[in-house]
């Protein structure tokens, strides 16, 4: 029972995984990955541990705003200016560190947010506030 049930459902899971991989090209905005800035942006996202405070498509920490749709919510110029202005130093307010990113890196990060924002997420989040 245990081995049979486990193997059966794991095979179903693998089958669905295979199908998911077939369907993904229509949903995951992979064309954007041809731009090296997007790939570099993802690495910046990771190596500055942004997920430790923010969420991306709802996954991550819940200390700071969702960034999967930040490109649509704020636009590229605001995002760059905001990152450069940190920390705000406003007393008692949650603080974001200063990451000392170059102009090129800021553009790469914005390219990454634009790419993520154009993934088909089944209409999530419910509204622009994330």
């Amino acid at each position: 029972m245990f081995y049979g049930g486990t193997i059966f459902f794991f095979l179903v899971f693998l089958g669905l995984t295979y199908n998911t991989e077939q369907v993904l090209p229509k949903r995951d905005n992979r064309a954007a990955l041809a731009d090296p800035a997007v790939v570099a942006g993802k690495k910046l996202w990771e190596t500055n541990q942004c997920i430790g405070c923010h969420s991306l498509l709802g996954e991550g920490a819940y200390f700071a705003p969702e960034l999967g749709n930040v490109y649509k919510r704020r636009g590229p110029e605001f995002i760059k200016a905001w990152i450069q202005a940190q920390p705000t130093g406003a007393p008692g307010r949650r603080q974001m560190p200063q990451f000392n990113l170059t102009d090129k890196q800021l553009d790469e990060l914005v390219a990454f947010f634009k790419y993520v924002g154009e993934i088909d997420t089944a209409k999530w989040p419910p509204n622009i506030e994330g």
């Binding site: 998911t20 369907v23 498509l57 997420t121 989040p125």
Partner: peptide, 8 residues
């Protein structure tokens, strides 16, 4: 796998 770009 609801909202991360995976099939519905």
């Amino acid at each position: 796998y609801y909202w991360i770009g995976t099939p519905e």
